[in-house]
Simulated scan of single mutants.
Amino acid sequence: MLKKILSYFYPIKIYSQDSSLSKSLEITWSNGDLVVDSLNTNYSYGSLQRILKLGLKNIGFSKIQKMNTVLVLGVAGGSVIKTLIDDIDYKGKITGVEIDSEIIKIANRYFKLDEIEQLQIVIDDAFEFVLKTKEKYDLIIIDIFQDTKMPNFLFEDFFIDRICHLLKSKGFVLFNTMLLSKAENLRNQKLINEFKTEDFSIKSIPRVEKHNELIVIEKLV
């Protein structure tokens, strides 16, 4: 409790470890909350939780409450899962795909993800998972980073087409991206400009928490 109180004045690191995939991982008390950080950015809770909550609010909490299946690509500490359950009161099934088993161990220890009955965690590469899964989803959340970098496959036509194929009728994709350079701005703009299909709509929510842009895809039929 003392560390939590003191964290309103300055961050207090309580745990750190190296990860072969995420490099440095740290658990820190910050402004009264536990957060997960990599070397250069927030991985879960903190600003990232605010970013994704804004995206979910844009889709509509009432719509999400009625959904049956949610896929989360990139779990990290599980902050968006906590938002779905605690803030939106989502009761359906959540499948979380995370390539880094070490961060899931941390999430289970500090954030009790393994106590969420409606959550299934799959340790797998997101690209491989979306190729293999036969399920369809009402909502797909993409939140995949290696520190501040995003894998190139996330922006390839094949991957985006496959993600859209996995959506149920009237489903949504919430894609969190980070813009730290002109090239990354152009990358996002290219995706949005070239995404042309009568069955889907696409829009962006720019400059969330300064460096993030949310892309929302909706299946119209």
Rank of each mutant, 00 (worst) to 15 (best):
Q189P: 05
E115R: 13
L6K: 12
V216L: 15
S22F: 04
L73R: 09
F145P: 08
E198A: 09
F200C: 11
I202Y: 09
L131E: 12
F155G: 04
T69S: 11
D37P: 00
A107E: 02
D114W: 09
A76Q: 07
G32I: 07
T95R: 04
S47W: 04
D114H: 14
E156G: 02
Y43Q: 06
D114V: 00
L113D: 03
N68D: 14
K182R: 11
K93T: 12
F195I: 13
S201G: 06
F195Q: 06
I85M: 06
L39P: 00
R50L: 14
L56N: 03
K66T: 07
L119I: 09
W29R: 14
E102R: 13
L52C: 02
F195A: 09
V221S: 10
H211P: 00
N152H: 08
G60C: 11
E102C: 03
E194C: 02
D199Y: 13
N193T: 08
I27Q: 01
Y110D: 08
K136N: 11
F159Q: 05
N31D: 10
V97P: 01
N152M: 10
G32Y: 08
I85F: 01
I116V: 11
L73M: 10
K136M: 13
P151Y: 00
A76L: 09
L186E: 15
S22A: 13
I59R: 07
L220S: 07
I51Q: 01
L56C: 05
R50P: 00
D18L: 09
S169E: 10
I140F: 09
S44G: 14
Q120K: 15
S101K: 11
P151N: 01
Y137N: 02
S62L: 11
V35M: 05
K182C: 02
S16Q: 14
F61L: 03
E115T: 13
K93W: 00
D147G: 02
E184R: 13
I205T: 10
L34V: 07
D147P: 03
V80Q: 14
R187W: 08
I81D: 12
L186F: 08
A126I: 03
F145M: 04
D157K: 14
D86V: 05
Y45G: 04
K170C: 04
N42Y: 02
G171Q: 12
I99T: 02
D37Y: 02
T69N: 14
I88G: 04
G74D: 01
Y90G: 00
N188I: 04
N185M: 13
V75N: 08
E213D: 14
F195L: 06
Q118G: 01
S38D: 07
I14D: 08
P151D: 01
N212W: 05
K219W: 09
L54V: 03
V35S: 01
V173C: 04
V72A: 01
Y45H: 11
I5N: 04
N185H: 14
S44L: 06
V80G: 00
Y137K: 08
N108C: 10
P206W: 15
K91L: 09
K203D: 08
F155R: 06
I94T: 05
N68F: 03
G92R: 03
E128Y: 05
S62E: 15
F145Q: 05
N40W: 01
M178E: 06
